[in-house]
Design a protein around this nucleic acid. Sequence first.
DNA 1: CTGAAAGCGCTTACAG
DNA 2: CTGAAAGCGCTTACAG
Lengths: 339, 339
Amino acid sequence: MRVTINDIAKKANVSPSTVSRVIANNPRISSTTSEKVLKIMKEMNYHPNMIARSLANRSTKIIGVIVPGAIEKAFQHPFFPEILRGIASEAHKNTYNILISSVTEVKDEKQVINELAKGGIAEGIILMTSRMKDPSIAELIKINFPFVVIGRSMVDSEINWVDNDNFSVAYELTKHFINQGHKKIALIGVSKQVVVTLDRLEGYKKALLDSNLEIDEGLIVEGKFFDDIGYGLMKKILDEGARPTGVIACDDVLAFGAIKLLTEYGLKIPDDIAVAGFNNLPLSDYSTPSLTSVEVNAFGLGAKAFQLLIKSINSNYEVFNKAIVPAQLVIRNSTLKQV
Amino acid sequence: MRVTINDIAKKANVSPSTVSRVIANNPRISSTTSEKVLKIMKEMNYHPNMIARSLANRSTKIIGVIVPGAIEKAFQHPFFPEILRGIASEAHKNTYNILISSVTEVKDEKQVINELAKGGIAEGIILMTSRMKDPSIAELIKINFPFVVIGRSMVDSEINWVDNDNFSVAYELTKHFINQGHKKIALIGVSKQVVVTLDRLEGYKKALLDSNLEIDEGLIVEGKFFDDIGYGLMKKILDEGARPTGVIACDDVLAFGAIKLLTEYGLKIPDDIAVAGFNNLPLSDYSTPSLTSVEVNAFGLGAKAFQLLIKSINSNYEVFNKAIVPAQLVIRNSTLKQV
DNA sequence: CTGAAAGCGCTTACAG
DNA sequence: CTGAAAGCGCTTACAG
């Protein structure tokens, strides 16, 4: 049997209320009784039941993190652990714990969210990705629960989100290609579901337009964001006869897949074709050639997300904030022609 | 105000008990009332309060994962997210959620563990590393709470743990060096605190002895396990005049640090000196030269840890299990002399 | 400064 | 098949 507040109370000859106040460090308790109770608590190795406390309090000091799809797939990409790291770092500072839940099927989402939110387990929720018409976002809005989305949301303006300025950095990256003399630049891995890739698409288009280059829809290939299908996407482009001299992938993993295919086709990088990605994997710095990428600062995204969430929790969900975490172009050999 | 079981009961003209039974799918409830209640629950968008349920039930369906040191440091190494991935994968199958807690200071550990364990939040705990004289392990034993340690524990035999056979695989790796003709083989990154490194040390020694090679304590250098100090450890060896022809690092990150220094000293790998690590980072396959390493199957360690934990929870903590997850030597160019 | 009592939102023997 | 009541282990106005 666990020792409860009542056991302590009896042993100390005080009421449970008093014990509770001692635990809460209530200043109205005399130091004599306080010390007596504290001593007995130590002796009996007592620790308050957080569940009971939460029920009485409505405060769990837990935030929920919802991972899209199966966590075992998502976490294969370092992007998500990095976000989690950022969240955890801030959470720790604020003495919050993190509850991780992964949602495999879309129909489970409502269920999971309700469990965390209405179930009283979490005080707030962070969604790790922002999709178009996101059912989780819709649900959270409906039940009016504090949450933050990682990735700009287009569903509703009354939402907290953190993101990079994907439009600008994609613009910058595309300009980098153009400055290197490229006119036919492919973009692979755009997903209509994933807002960040759509923002990148817009930045890409704008850069082409600003340089009076044509937008060739045959060079823009959709594909699931994080899956290792760069190989196939690249193949599709080449097999349909397009001959880009540059390729931008919405993720470094996609870029590596594309590079694999290009190499098989006998193309040299960057001389025959330049390649760049996003998310700046550790690998990207060490591969041969090293891969030009965009440092999105996933840690910062996670940390900022937590900060907004705390604000939202404490402000009773009345203010909505967006935060832009700076992204940075990292130019490496895969886009630099040998001189 | 959240809608509670009482609100539903009133609306449905039944008692709260009945509503509770409907939720629990109790077969003794007539389908008529069950349907009526279910309908009203839907209408009022009701979802049971998990905290209250947990208090009445003593079941939270949450397991706690305790990360050693600051989570933001630990998670910089892919090893930990991989373990988490394995845990999460199994947890999801068993409809458990995961609560992550990081402990920065040793004196916080008892506190955190008590919160999760006695606080009634977690039903079981997974410790992400096993140290010598681990205070967390001691505490968990003392309060008789279900837990599993990742990494063989030497504290107590009555413990659940999962690990690789570090002795054997270190033996094998050392033999590989010896077979390549090496006689002076350094081992860096052994920590007296971390059991797995000590096991590796033993395997290393045994391999040397079996080949009638001398154990040179000057070639065995201590160092914090996961910190990026391979550079300094290697420097120490060389600056003290030792001239190994092979180096085994207890982690790939350490190995990369060592390689950096060796390169600065003008040594070629593997021709002048062969290097190998442990944990088989993604990077290790792509670096130049590619790094010989040991695949420890962190995902498998995590998954197995969860399985043992569930067993332990359900068996009322009476049976103790150990599990060995197979590790595999991955030989790459950093230890293969060019022919 | 301290206690008795009600309440947080559930579950579950017990009784019918 | 259903309800009244007690209980899970806390907190917190209210009263003194």
